[in-house]
């Protein structure tokens, strides 16, 4: 956590610098207002505060290891007994998960990628039902949630139901 604080601190300082630069570039007086009514005032103050927190975070990660020891101790999860028959593990379809699905990093990247494709490429360019069905199907298949046929049925059902309920029922125009 110490290491991540160092990098987060750095990122936070960069973000704050961006906002400080942006607020200073706005007009600071015009007809009808002086500095107290200027559009850049609030973002400037906020960005300066954000920068300060970033600096504290970076400094803390380098100079105060004791703080992290205490923090880690207080955040340790309560011990849970393992032998427990009220829950069971999910069975991936098709036996063992392929190796790449066992890495947390790849799983996260895959979820992000799938959602990004749906958000930025499928929605708005294709008919809503088609876009949604393709996304749901891809998601289930990639993560071995169900067989081909089942996946197809679920995907089309989701697309059609959402479309029917919202576009026709609730009167919301879908993309």
């Amino acid at each position: 956590m110490q290491k991540s604080d160092w990098w987060c601190g750095l990122a936070i300082i960069l973000i704050s610098l961006f906002f400080i630069w942006g607020s200073l570039a706005m007009p600071w007086s015009d007809k009808g207002f002086d500095w107290s009514g200027a559009p850049g005032l609030t973002p400037l103050v906020l960005a300066i505060f954000l920068g300060i927190t970033g600096i504290i975070l970076m400094v803390r990660s380098r100079t105060n290891p004791k703080f992290y020891e205490q923090l880690e101790k207080s955040m340790a999860p309560p011990v849970v007994e393992e032998d427990d028959d009220s829950i069971e593990e999910e069975e991936p379809v098709g036996g063992e998960l392929p190796a790449f699905l066992k890495s947390e990093k790849i799983r996260v990247a895959l979820v992000i990628l799938l959602c990004a494709i749906y958000t930025f490429i499928l929605l708005g360019r294709f008919h809503y039902i088609a876009a949604t069905a393709v996304f749901v199907a891809a998601f289930i298949l990639v993560f071995r949630g169900a067989g081909w046929l089942q996946t197809g049925i679920i995907a089309v059902l989701v697309g059609v139901c959402v479309w029917l309920v919202f576009q026709q029922g609730f009167g919301v125009f879908l993309p």
Partner: peptide
């Protein structure tokens, strides 16, 4: 299983976000 549930939840999330301002 969450593998089936989560894409549906994402679809609902996007409908929710879209519906406010279209």
């Amino acid at each position: 299983p969450r593998t089936i549930l989560m894409p549906i939840v994402f679809v609902l999330c996007s409908v929710g976000a879209y519906a406010i301002n279209g």
